[in-house]
Design a binder for these strands. Structure first.
Length: 560
RNA sequence: GGGCCUGUAGCCUAGCCUGGAUAGGGCGCCAGCCUUCUAUAUGAGAAAGCAAUUCUCUGAAGGCAGCUGGAUACCGUGGGUUCGAAUCCCUCCUGGCCCGCCA
C-alpha cells in the first residue's frame, strides 16, 4: 500500500467521509513547505479552519509520517523523509529499466503514418510518426501488447499523375536519388505542366482506368515506381527509429468494402438512391449523410475503411484500435465509427481517432502541389547538420563518424521532442530556423542532463554498501526524490489519455530539478557516506530519465 | 448555416478530464555565475616606495546544450452554479479544421 492509501485510511477512520470522497479531495500541495499531501476540510463543517484543527487533534501520528500540521482550512501531511527516500530509491535500484512499468494487458492496434506513394514524407508525417511511435511505446510500457500498423495509400489519381509525368519525361531513368524523392519530383512536374496543358489530367484519368482494368503494362510501371518509393520510406523509418508490424495496402483492399455496403443495405442501415448509389443516413446523429458506394459500384474512401477495420479485427482481435490521423479527418472517423456501430460491429466502441493538429509553416499552410512543403528527410538533414556543428564546437578532436553519430541522435531528439512537447490537439507553427533551438525546453536538454548524470557517476568512484538514506535531507534532494516517485503515475496518465506531452513536461521538470540539485549539492566529496547516498540518487535520476526518453522514442546518450 | 477544436505575460506553452492555498515552465529581456583580452607614454587602485608579480575595480569581447536572481498575466468576453472557478454550465467573440459519389 502506498502512502496516499495509508493517509486516506487515516482520514477515513477519523471522519464520516467515504474512501472515494477522500481520495478525490486529497491532493499534493502547491509547494513543498506545505508537506507531501494536503486535505482540504471545507466539507467537514461550516467552519473549515476549526474542523481542520479538530481533525488534527484526533489523528494519532503513525510511523511513516513525520508530522501533521494545519494551515487555515488545510490539513498538511509530512511524510517521514528517510522512510520515503529509502522506499523510492531502493525501488528504482531494484526495477531499473522497468521502473514505472504498468500492468495493463490489452491488445492494442495503433495505425499511424499512412503515406501516399506519390511523394516523400513531409513535416506533417514527422509529427504523426513522432506521436504514433511515442504512443506505441507508452502503451507498451504500460504493459499492453501493442501492434503498430501502417496503411499505404498506393493507388488513385495522384499516383497516376506521377506515373504520367514519368512516362513522358522520365526517359526510363532509374532513380538517381532516394526513390520517394525521385518519384515526388515527377508529381511536382505533373502539377506544373498540367496548368498549361489540361490534357494531362485526362491522361492521368485514363491511366487510372487502365490500372483498374489491371492492364499489365500499367501495373508493371506502377509496381516499379511504388517499389522505389517504399524503399525510400523504409530508409526514413529506419532513420527515425520506427517499424511496423504489418503494412496494409490500399490497392489490396479498396474493392473489398463493397460487401460491407451491401450488408448494410440488407440490414436496413443504409439506403439505396435512384442512381443505385448507397448512402448511410447519419443526419439524425448530427452529421451529414455519407455515400458509401458510388452508383457505378466503385468504392469511396470510407468504403475501404469500413472493411479494413473488420479485417484488422479478424487479424488481431484487438481490444482497442487507435487511428493516429490529423484533425482534418475528424468528421471522417466520426462517420466511420457511427456506421460500424450501426452495423453492430462489437469492436465499434473500441475505435479511437487520435487526432493531432496541423503543422503550419511561418509562410502558411503547406501545399504539396505548390512545392511549399518541407520534406521529412530535408528537415532531419538540416537539423542534424546544425547539431554536428554544435558538437564540433565543443569537442575538436572527435572523429568525423562520431561527430555524425552524435549530431544525428541529438537532432532526432530535438525534432521528436519539439513535436511531442505540447498537446497534440493543437496546431503548431514550425519555423525550421527558429523553432529548433537546443536550449530551453528541448530534447537535447534532457539528453544533456542524462549525460551529465552519467559523467558524475563515472567520476564518483565509490562502492555502494549500505546507504544511509537519512543523509538526503537537503530541499533540492527532497524535491528530486519526490519527482522520481511520480514517474509511474505520469506513465499511467500518459497512457490513459494518449498524451505523450505529459511525459515531456515531467522530464523537463525532472531534468531541471536534477540540475538544481547538483549545483546546490556536490556529489563528489570527502564525506564518503554522503557521497554514497548522493551517487544512488544520481543513478536513480539517470535511470528515470532514460526510461522516460525511451517511451518517447528518444536516445539517452552516455555522453554528448 | 451545421459539426469539431482552440484562446493563459512581447512570443511559445502547462494546468481544464477529477473545482481548493501564491496560475507552473520555456524563448526573449535585465543583472550575475564561467573564460579571455586590454591598459607597453592611452584607465584607476592595493600589497609602505621602485621593479617584478599578484589582486581588486573599471572597460571590452567571448562563451554558454548548465546554474542564480529580476521584470512581465483583467487565464478571450459577459453571465450562472459554488464556501471557493483558468478548471463545471450558458451567451457572445477570435483563430483553425471539416461538412465531396477526393483521399
Amino acid at each position: 500500500m502506498d502512502f496516499k492509501q495509508k493517509i486516506i485510511e487515516l482520514i477515513k477512520k477519523n471522519t464520516k467521509l467515504k474512501t472515494d470522497e477522500i481520495s478525490n479531495l486529497l491532493s499534493v500541495p502547491p509547494n513543498p513547505d506545505l508537506g507531501d499531501f494536503a486535505f482540504p476540510c471545507f466539507k467537514l463543517g461550516k467552519n473549515p479552519v476549526e474542523s481542520a484543527n479538530k481533525l488534527k487533534d484526533k489523528i494519532k501520528i503513525p510511523d511513516f509520517l513525520e508530522k501533521i500540521e494545519t494551515k487555515g482550512p488545510y490539513l498538511n501531511f509530512y511524510l517521514d523523509k528517510a522512510n520515503f527516500t529509502e522506499k523510492i530509491l531502493t525501488n528504482i535500484q531494484k526495477e531499473t529499466k522497468n521502473y514505472g512499468k504498468g500492468r495493463e494487458k490489452k491488445k492494442i492496434l495503433v495505425e499511424y503514418c499512412g503515406p501516399n506513394t506519390n511523394k516523400p514524407l513531409h513535416l506533417g508525417h514527422v509529427r504523426n510518426m513522432a506521436l504514433g511511435n511515442a504512443v506505441v511505446r507508452i502503451l507498451e510500457f504500460q504493459g499492453n501488447k501493442v501492434i503498430p500498423v501502417n496503411i499505404i495509400n498506393d493507388r488513385g489519381i495522384h499516383i497516376c499523375q506521377s506515373m504520367v509525368a514519368y512516362q513522358k519525361w522520365g526517359k526510363k531513368q532509374k532513380p538517381n536519388k532516394k526513390g520517394d524523392h525521385f518519384v515526388g519530383d515527377y508529381y511536382v512536374l505533373f502539377s506544373k505542366k498540367s496548368k498549361e496543358d489540361p490534357n494531362l489530367d485526362l491522361e492521368a484519368k485514363s491511366l487510372l482506368l487502365k490500372w483498374e482494368e489491371e492492364d499489365p503494362e500499367t501495373h508493371k510501371l506502377w509496381r516499379k515506381m511504388n517499389t522505389w518509393v517504399l524503399q525510400g520510406f523504409q530508409e526514413t523509418y529506419d532513420r527515425f527509429g520506427i517499424a511496423f508490424e504489418k503494412e496494409y495496402f490500399e490497392s489490396e483492399i479498396y474493392k473489398q468494402g463493397k460487401e460491407v455496403a451491401f450488408e448494410g443495405l440488407k440490414k436496413g442501415v443504409f439506403e439505396k438512391n435512384d442512381d443505385k448509389s448507397i448512402t448511410a443516413p447519419l443526419e439524425k446523429f448530427g452529421m451529414t449523410n455519407k455515400v458509401v458506394l458510388r452508383g457505378d459500384g466503385t468504392s469511396v474512401y470510407i468504403t475501404q475503411d469500413m472493411f479494413l477495420a473488420q479485417q484488422r479485427y479478424e487479424d488481431y482481435k484487438f481490444d482497442k484500435l487507435l487511428y493516429v490521423v490529423a484533425s482534418e479527418q475528424s468528421m471522417h472517423f466520426k462517420q466511420l465509427f457511427k456506421i460500424l456501430e450501426l452495423l453492430k460491429r462489437k469492436f465499434a466502441k473500441n475505435l479511437h481517432h487520435l487526432s493531432y493538429g496541423m503543422v503550419h509553416l511561418p509562410t502558411g499552410r503547406m501545399k504539396s502541389r505548390e512545392g511549399t512543403v518541407v520534406d521529412a528527410d530535408d528537415i532531419m538533414d538540416e537539423i542534424s547538420e546544425l547539431a554536428q556543428k554544435e558538437v564540433e564546437k565543443r569537442y575538436k578532436n572527435l572523429s568525423k563518424k562520431e561527430r555524425k553519430r552524435r549530431g544525428e541522435f541529438i537532432s532526432l531528439a530535438a525534432i521528436k521532442f519539439f513535436m511531442l512537447r505540447s498537446d497534440a490537439s493543437k496546431d503548431m507553427v514550425f519555423d525550421p530556423k527558429a523553432s529548433l533551438s537546443f536550449e530551453g525546453e528541448t530534447g537535447p536538454y534532457i539528453q544533456y542532463t542524462h549525460a551529465r548524470a552519467n559523467s558524475i557517476l563515472k567520476k564518483a568512484d565509490v562502492k555502494i554498501t549500505k546507504v544511509n538514506y537519512n543523509l538526503l535531507q537537503e530541499p533540492k534532494e527532497q524535491a528530486l526524490i519526490s519527482l522520481l516517485s511520480k514517474f509511474p503515475t505520469k506513465v499511467e496518465e500518459t497512457a490513459r489519455h494518449y498524451k505523450p506531452h505529459i511525459i515531456c513536461r515531467y522530464l523537463l521538470d525532472l531534468a531541471q530539478a536534477f540540475n538544481e540539485f547538483y549545483h546546490a549539492c556536490h556529489v563528489i566529496s570527502e564525506d564518503k557516506k554522503l557521497m554514497e547516498a548522493r551517487v544512488v540518487l544520481v543513478a536513480a535520476t539517470k535511470q528515470v530519465l532514460a526510461n522516460g526518453l525511451k517511451v518517447l522514442g528518444i536516445h539517452a546518450p552516455e555522453e554528448m
